[in-house]
Design a protein around this nucleic acid. Structure first.
Lengths: 120, 120
DNA sequence: TATTTTTGATTACCATTAGTAATCAGCTAC
DNA sequence: GTAGCTGATTACTAATGGTAATCAAAAATA
């Protein structure tokens, strides 16, 4: 009962897995960032993220809405526009993104050293 | 040139994408956590993460090694053991994990309210 | 000696998911 | 009417994920 403190340690796995279930995958965070940056409409978001297809975007937006990270409003009018906005709750992800962003920069430095930063 | 500050905003996308390329996916972070918690051997790690299969673990460990987040040492001996250890560099991920962990807890509260926390 | 067990890892196979391209309905501009 | 834009869906294909069986090497067992 005292030997390993195994359970307490392992409890870190579950919340992290919960998080990954919600924002894991290639696109969700990138889409969220794009929306945070002011892109409101489907096409705007699509165009702001290279390689993202309409099908995947459509599905991911649904997931994000389901998880209460964005809201979706259909504006009746001309060529039917849909508006996506970040929720208050989504802003709690800011720290997460901040750390991911930081680490991306740090890791790139570590891997490529001080050599020129490639154009990706 | 002054209107949108578009470029500066969008620069957040790339480092985040870099990070996701390295630690994205269902398993990599969970595996890293397991190794941090003291699991050194293949079977140990495998058994510490529910639903993780040998094939996927094998592949993910290679990826993690490639990205310099763990080291792999083959111990010649009895039933050939392999030892996986976290690198110094991997420890820079601690903040990231911490935030993901935090957010998982926060999000679960938000979604399930104050109701009993399910047994998952 | 032969059999079984344990290790990390790979393979063949099937299921699921991601991605591409075409298409839809509704409306505007020409 | 034709073309073009909107958000979204569908059929189809490529890629990835997961399961189970299997591999080699050696220790333990009988």
């Amino acid at each position: 009962m005292k030997k390993k403190e195994h359970k307490e340690c392992m409890s870190a796995l579950l919340p992290v897995r919960d998080t990954l279930d919600v924002i894991g995958g290639k696109w969700k965070l990138l889409i969220l960032i794009s929306i945070w940056e002011g892109n409101k409409h489907f096409r705007e978001i699509e165009r702001s993220i290279p390689k993202l297809s309409t099908k995947v975007l459509s599905k991911e937006l649904k997931d994000l809405e389901e998880h209460q990270l964005i809201t979706r409003t259909v504006l009746n009018g001309f060529p039917v526009r849909t508006e996506y906005k970040p929720t208050e709750h989504s802003k709690t992800l800011e720290k997460v993104i901040f750390e991911l962003h930081n680490w991306g920069i740090h890791h790139r430095k570590k891997i490529f050293g001080n050599k020129s930063i490639s154009n990706n």
